[in-house]
Structure formats: structure tokens, C-alpha cells
Amino acid sequence: MTHSCRVILTAASALGLLVALPAAARDFITVAVTTSTENSGLFGHILPIFEAETGIEVRVVVQGTGQALETGRRGDADVVFVHARAQEETFVAEGYGVERFDVMHNDFVIVGPGDDPARLREAPDAASAMAAIAAAGASFVSRGDDSGTHVAEKALWSAAGIEPAGEWYLSTGSGMGAMLNMAAQLPAYALTDRGSWLGFDNRGPLEIVHQGDPALFNPYGIILVNPKRHAHIKAEQGQAFIDWIISDAGQAAIAGFTIGGEQPFLPATRSE
């Protein structure tokens, strides 16, 4: 009895300690971002600069664009930072977000095996490149997860007038990295963004086989979740982050991020 009592008491107090360890009571905001930005390592570069300037900690939750917007819709993030223009505008129009700001852009690229069996390198534009994949029946790996990349991919297929289906079309329902790992192993063609591609190490036989079409332009937007929908949203700090990232300082920080000498994201203000 005495033993078990003591054991239970000890366990209970240890428990209290474990659970109650207070999260550092610092000022922080939660930002839902897409895998493409996080995988590239962008935040590791820019967030320390912002935190040093403002003392606001930014907690980055990495999700696909669809899930990130859902997280914002439920009020589980203060700010969303994604790349699917149409969905972002709907998000604001429905009153979940306050306003969308352009932050930066990069471009999508089509990667595939270096020997390029479907001859994408010769395609005049992105839509015909996609058509060439379908025509050759070459394997193509899709995110299939309603992410920004997946949305862009679907737009390309419809521009090519193709409903992708069949043995060659693999909808994986996975994140950017997992998809690229698959594409490298098969090997298969895949649509990815330049930032993720530059940050991805396990390329195997994959190379960029098509790029440069304006249709592959990939803009990133940032939106404050509407505090009228969710009263707990840290609007002030969230807005401070948005103001910073679109300011000259923030834009310079983005421009200063390079991978192997290449600049994966171009600041929005420079392009305008």
C-alpha cells in the first residue's frame, strides 16, 4: 500500500511537471506555410532577422497549401503564407483572411530523367510539354494533395486539354519532398518549384527538363487571418510580420537567400 501510494504520488508529480512545463511566455505568432518554402530553407534564413528586429517569435507550421488555408480557416494560425492565387483570393473573399499581399515569386519547373524520353526539352511551352508526357505515356508523379503545386499542375493539364489518367499518372498524395524522392527513384517526370528543387539533395537522375514559360510563374502571397472571425488571432504581431516581410528589409532578406549561388525566390517588389 505505502509503496503503491508513493509510486502513484511520484508518478503524478512527475506528470504535472512534464505537462505543465510552461511554453516560453514569449511573444509569438503561428504561421502556416507551404512545404515548398520550408523545404528550401528560406525561413531558417529570414526568420532570425525578423526575430532579432522585433522580438516576435515566428512558429512555422509546414503544410500543403490546401491544409494551410484550412488551418487558417479554423483559426489555428495567425498568418498563412501560401502559393495558390485563386484559393487565396477565395479565402479573403469569404472573410477568413484580411488582405492578400504579394511577397515573392519563383517559378515552377518540370523535372524528369536526364535522358528525357518524352522530349520535353524540345517543347515550345509548358502545356505542350505536359501533352508530350501524356502522349509518350511517360511516368508522371503528381502531388495529388491540393497543394499550390498540385493546383498549378492541374491548370497546366487543362491548358493542354488533357485529363490525366492511366498507368503513367501517379497521384501520390504526398508532400513535395516525398514526391521528388519518388520521381528520382522511378524515375518519372514531376512538377516542382525552383525553391524546393534547389533545396533538394536526393536528385538521382533528375534534371530540369522544361522551364521558362510565363505560365509557370509561381507567386507567393501572405494573408493575416481575420480577427473578426477568430478573436484570439494576434493581429498586431501578425500584421507586424506581414509589414516587415513586404518592407524593404524583408524583401532584401528574401533576396539574400541563396542555395548554391542560385536565388530560389525573387522578391515581389523587384519584379513590379
Partner: peptide, 24 residues
């Protein structure tokens, strides 16, 4: 947890992240 660096990143979520970055 959301796999937030320095806050909710565990061994397993870090492994997942590094795998997706291709840092096998």
C-alpha cells in the same frame, strides 16, 4: 504539433522533414 522548429519538432518529425528535403 505542426513540426515547428525549436518548439514541436521531435526526432520522428525531423526525420520526416529531412527525408522530404532529400537529406537522406
Amino acid at each position: 504539433g505542426g513540426n515547428i522548429a525549436g518548439h514541436t519538432r521531435t526526432m520522428t518529425t525531423a526525420i520526416t522533414l529531412e527525408t522530404s528535403r532529400g537529406n537522406l
